[in-house]
Amino acid sequence: MSELAIKIGDLSERLKVPVETIRYYEKERLLPPPRRTEGNYRVYDSAQLDRLAFIRNCRSLDMTLDEIRELLRLRDAPEEECGGVNRLIDEHIDHVQEKIAELRKLESHLQALRRRCDSARPAGECAILGDLNSTVVPAASTAGHIGLHSPSKRRRAGA
């Protein structure tokens, strides 16, 4: 069987992972450095393709890079017990449940905010805008906390 030799652009296209993200995973040492051609192009083999697919699948489950590192460590040590995998997944489930609860609170707050304005009127009289202009908005910290519009504390760059 011939060994796969694929350039970064083709790898990106095949696995639907941006080139910048692949480079980031290399920098973070999730992916080993690829072989280089005489023209200094990155060339990936089938093991790197499989590893990137694994990472992509973990990221699709919203796993952090540290969680992925641990899963890769266990994946690379097939003789080890899988209890560590189970614990990691259990912790991740707990995190997801917390995030869902926070999203429900956010939804409730948005619904309450929406009920504040029941008809079209001049923007200067809009109760929603008035509430958002207030110095105290009860759930204002929730969106940042759960990572809706800002990077989560659990997750770093590298979609």
Rank of each mutant, 00 (worst) to 15 (best):
A127C: 09
V17K: 05
S46P: 08
I68P: 03
L71R: 04
R104A: 09
A77Q: 03
L65R: 02
R51E: 10
A47E: 14
E107P: 01
R154K: 08
R23K: 06
E26M: 07
I128W: 07
I93H: 07
M63H: 14
E38L: 07
R154I: 14
E20F: 13
P151G: 15
I68E: 00
R69V: 02
R35I: 06
S119H: 15
L72Y: 13
D90H: 15
E107S: 05
D131T: 15
L113W: 05
R116T: 11
R114M: 10
P78H: 02
I89N: 09
L30R: 00
L148H: 15
P151Y: 13
Q97S: 03
E20T: 10
R87M: 09
V17R: 00
S12R: 13
C58T: 03
V137Q: 03
L31I: 00
E28P: 01
R69E: 02
E70T: 12
K153N: 13
L106T: 07
Q97W: 05
S60M: 14
P151K: 15
L88I: 12
L49A: 06
V17F: 09
E81N: 02
E67M: 02
E38H: 12
S119I: 13
C58E: 01
V19I: 11
E38D: 14
D94S: 06
K16G: 05
I6F: 14
V85N: 08
L4G: 02
I100V: 14
G144C: 11
V136M: 03
R115H: 09
G9Y: 08
A53D: 14
L49E: 13
I146C: 04
R114W: 06
L52R: 04
C58D: 11
Y24A: 07
I55L: 05
E79L: 08
I8H: 01
G83E: 15
E3C: 10
Q97N: 05
A127W: 14
L129C: 08
C82T: 06
R23L: 07
E3T: 15
G39I: 03
V17C: 06
L61F: 08
L15S: 12
S119K: 11
N133D: 06
C82Y: 06
A157D: 03
I22V: 15
Y25Q: 08
I128A: 07
R56E: 09
Q111D: 08
I68W: 14
K27L: 05
V96S: 09
R155W: 12
G130S: 06
V85A: 12
A159Q: 07
A143N: 07
